[in-house]
């Protein structure tokens, strides 16, 4: 993974995908959701700078032997400043809830069934409005092999 220059005024979809993947600890993020979120984030004037800074710090940390499994915000090894820490949390929240909270503009939905909050219960609890169990499919406990 190469470091991208932080002075750049914009940031590529690929870098956004990478930083999303690093922050969420997932390699299989839904491509459409990545594109949609990329657009929404890039609407913010501060986004390219924050995306790049967080991306670069994590990449540098990984190059120095830090584990990908580490907790991102709590692991001071990444040496996030306050703004970077806030941004990583904001990105994580957007990915988990599928909702983009904005200070000035109206709250926006950016993902529904691909929101990560559904990941750990997939196949166990139906995604509201999307999945159903079939009549009576709720009477027994699900097979919960995880």
């Amino acid at each position: 993974m190469s470091v991208v220059l932080a002075e750049e005024k914009t940031v590529s979809l690929d870098v956004f995908r990478k930083v999303s993947s690093l922050v969420t600890l997932r390699d299989n993020l839904d491509a459409d959701t990545v594109s949609r979120m990329y657009k929404v984030f890039l609407d913010e004037p501060w986004a390219p700078d924050h995306i790049l800074r967080v991306h670069n710090k994590i990449v540098a940390g990984l190059a120095n032997g830090l584990s990908r499994k580490n907790h991102l915000m709590k692991d001071l090894a990444w040496k996030f400043d306050e703004g970077e820490s806030w941004f990583a949390g904001h990105l994580l929240m957007t990915w988990y809830l599928g909702v983009y909270y904005h200070a000035e503009r109206p709250t926006q939905r950016v993902a529904y069934e691909t929101a990560l909050m559904f990941d750990s219960t997939r196949g166990i609890l139906p995604i509201p409005l999307v999945e159903s169990l079939g009549f009576g499919g709720w009477t027994d406990a699900p097979e919960d092999a995880r």
Binding site: G89, M93, S120, P128
Partner: peptide, 25 residues
Amino acid sequence: PRFHETADGLLRQGLEPPKIDADVK
């Protein structure tokens, strides 16, 4: 279904992956 409130609450407590996934579940 209480997905949103649950995940939101855990995120606001500062939880991150992979712990948050286990805790949401």
